[in-house]
């Protein structure tokens, strides 16, 4: 790891700059995009996975690395939420403090619901969007509509990513045993009703 030696004679007011021990560092870098966990949660233009969105809230996909479950996120704000974790974690999708502290998969499919906390039984993506809009409001930023009103449907993610998996052994949320229409169940979540 590159280090900078401490120079006691170097003060804020002068002295020669320390020499970084990082040979081969590029003179310029591509500014990184803000990392976020799903569709419609980007704060800036061009900050979605494709880099083509025009404004806040309109991005198609997460910039954080895709993963399938709790504790598999890389770093701060890169964890999904909803199926594992305690109530506090589940009330803060995409808002974890550190690596491995997210509580579920990224991206957050529209069918996902929280299993604990004040959002129990309700859409995880809608909670993430609500927290995002609050943050943008505090920053005086205009937020555009998400490509899907209630987050990316699982079938859409499968068509885009080839496969999609989030954690758990209880089976596919988007399913029917022959006595329900999965679209109706998804609509209920989208309307903000508890499962």
């Amino acid at each position: 790891m590159a280090t900078i030696e401490n120079n006691k004679e170097l003060s804020m007011c002068g002295g020669s700059a320390p020499k970084p021990a990082a040979p081969g560092a590029p003179a310029s870098i591509t500014p990184p995009v803000e990392l976020h966990v799903c569709m419609g949660l980007n704060a800036c233009k061009g900050h979605d996975r494709t880099g083509t969105n025009n404004c806040a809230g309109t991005g198609y996909c997460a910039t954080a690395q895709q993963h399938s479950c709790q504790t598999l996120n890389n770093c701060r704000n890169q964890g999904g939420c909803g199926l594992y974790g305690d109530a506090l974690q589940q009330e803060n999708p995409g808002n974890n403090n550190c690596a491995w502290q997210g509580s579920c998969a990224v991206p957050i499919q529209a069918e996902r619901f929280s299993t604990l906390g004040t959002n129990k039984g309700k859409s995880t993506w809608k909670l993430a969007r609500q927290l995002f809009e609050k943050r943008m409001n505090e920053a005086n930023r205009t937020v555009g509509p998400s490509p899907y009103e209630c987050g990316p449907p699982q079938n859409w993610l499968v068509s885009l990513l080839g496969s999609y998996d989030s954690c758990g052994n209880s089976g596919n949320k988007r399913c029917s045993f022959g006595f329900n229409n999965p679209d109706d169940n998804a609509k209920k979540l989208c309307e903000g009703k508890a499962e």
């Binding site: 594992y84 974790g85 299993t115 954690c167 209880s170 399913c175 045993f177 329900n180």
Partner: peptide
């Protein structure tokens, strides 16, 4: 410790958790 997670839920006949 979490009281519920996705493994402690099941779906009823209408596939509600």
């Amino acid at each position: 410790y979490a009281q519920n997670n996705i493994d402690t839920i099941y779906y009823d006949k209408q596939h509600n958790p």
